[in-house]
Nucleic acid binder design. Structure first.
Length: 440
RNA sequence: GCGAGGAUGGCCCAGCGGUACGGCGGCAGCCUGCUAAGCUGUUUCUCUAUGAGAGCGGGGGUUCGAAUCCCCCUCCUCGCGCCA
């Protein structure tokens, strides 16, 4: 949620950000109309309440003096009727106002490029050395603004889909039989690789000062809706039938909501939390996309980074979290690029977002493996997470970024580290965790 | 799942029909020639702000008036039961 006071005082940045994202000014205009109405009704209601309180006090005085009170009781009854009448209108206006308010997006960071469509995301940097099939070289160079270093492959690397089948490490058919498409049995050494990645990711972030948690995997509507833009993403969430519970799509949400309604001491900040959880996604809008293999599936494990901090530090932490993931990928020898997501592709909460995209040789493309967002005070305001300062309580800023999403990284490893013998080489950093150096 | 007890401001706790007591902590100030002790004020949210309204886990009800009484729900604690 945005800051209403700021919006009233200085609406320009809000109009500007909404426009850059491709929204009209209608929402903000509508908000101002409703806000004006709401405030005027609020005043009327409060004045009536003031009267009612005075009468009530008078009654208690009269009773003490043993004087009659019937007349004034009637006065209170009448006032209460007026209050109830006005309150009904107020409630209606207030609900509408809240709804419109929740649609107004966060103010963008100045550096965000104004455009629509992922193809307009701004290239920031490339890191590593990519294995590029000769026919994909042009695309690779264009995607890295000619800065990417690479080794040319004369043959097309085997796709992860084929490897999964050939090495007997994924069973999609039987999973489909019992759960439908986009489900999977992970088998044998690939399962060990997943466990290794999880442990590696947790150790990696733990060493960088993160408290590690495994959060609840289901959440109630209220905290979830405050941690994210739930109306937009409802169709991508699994909802439980008999309970007010949703399966989480990322541990960002329970971690963010963990401090809901709390007032922190200044010295507690920053709070770095690394979360491990399965992430459940319906992928409802993704029909026909990545239908084979485990690249896009209904659940996967993710190690997530999250930071609560003071406003003046959030841009530094945004870079820090981005660099953490880059370092992690680098330590696994995975080539990647970082892009700054353009204005039209950001969620309402994001002030700025980097996507980190790994290179997938058989696809000849960079694909998203991590997403690093600064939500400034937007998420914290909805969740009411504050910290105490000399000059009163202020909202914290929240920043989140993927640490490591298992299925995406496993696919990446399969595609990037194929051996001559048709196996998959395990990155050195992971060997202590897997106990083997190749899947074959 | 059953029974009992509980949820009050940042924290602890009192109040149990008349408009939230007190303590701790934080902040501001006073005093004291000291990093002590003491004193005063303040501490949540909203509004058109020297003023007012709301707020005692959430929602409803009774009443002129509800933290207080009644009903429903949620969560916590302790027993009992069941269980990986």
């Amino acid at each position: 949620m945005i800051d209403v006071k700021l919006l009233r005082e200085n609406p320009e940045p809000f109009y500007d950000s909404a426009r850059k994202r491709g929204f009209g000014k209608a929402e903000i205009d509508k908000f101002f109309t409703l806000d004006k109405q709401w405030r005027s009704i609020l005043k009327e209601v409060n004045d009536l309440r003031k009267d009612r309180n005075a009468y009530s006090l008078r009654i208690s005085e009269l009773i003490k003096k043993k004087e009659p009170v019937d007349e004034i009781k009637n006065l209170v009854r009448k006032t209460n009727a007026s209050i109830a009448e006005k309150e009904e209108i107020q409630k209606k206006v207030e609900d509408e106002r809240e709804e419109v308010l929740s649609l107004i997006p966060n103010v963008l960071h100045d550096s965000v490029y104004e455009a629509k469509g992922d193809e307009n995301n701004q290239f920031i940097r490339f890191d590593g050395k990519a294995l590029v099939y000769k026919d994909d070289l042009k695309e690779f160079l264009s995607q890295t603004l000619n800065t990417g270093s690479y080794d040319i492959s004369q043959t097309k690397p085997v796709s992860h889909v084929d490897l999964e089948e050939k090495l007997d490490i994924v069973d999609l058919e039987r999973a489909a039989k019992i759960s439908g498409s986009r489900f999977y049995f992970l088998k044998n050494r690939l399962l060990k690789l997943e466990l290794a990645l999880i442990n590696y990711g947790i150790d990696f972030l733990s060493a960088r000062g993160f408290t590690t948690v495994s959060p609840p995997f289901m959440m109630n509507y209220d905290p979830l809706s405050k941690a994210t833009d739930i109306e937009t993403f409802k169709e991508s969430l699994y909802k439980l039938e008999n309970d007010d519970l949703y399966l989480i799509s990322t541990s960002e949400h329970p971690i963010a909501a963990m401090l809901k309604d709390e007032i922190l001491d200044e010295i507690e900040l920053p709070i770095r939390v690394a979360g491990l959880s399965p992430c459940f996604r319906r992928e409802a809008g993704a029909h026909g996309k990545d239908t084979k293999g485990i690249f896009r599936v209904h659940h996967f494990y993710k190690v997530e980074q999250f930071v609560f901090c003071k406003p003046e530090h959030s841009w530094d932490f945004h870079e820090e979290l981005t660099h953490n993931t880059e370092d992690l990928l680098r330590s696994l020898n995975i080539p990647f690029r970082v892009v700054s997501v353009c204005s039209g592709e950001l969620s309402r909460l994001n002030a700025k977002k980097y996507d980190i995209e790994a290179w997938y040789p058989s696809q000849g493309k960079f694909r998203e493996v991590a997403s690093s967002s600064n939500n400034t005070d937007f998420q914290a305001r909805s969740l009411n997470i504050r910290y105490r300062t000399k000059d009163g309580n202020r909202f914290v800023h929240t920043i989140n970024n993927t640490g490591l999403a298992t299925t995406r990284i496993m696919v990446c490893i399969m595609e990037n580290f194929q051996t001559a013998g048709g196996g998959i080489k395990i990155p050195n950093a992971l060997i202590p965790y897997t106990g083997f150096d190749e899947i074959n």
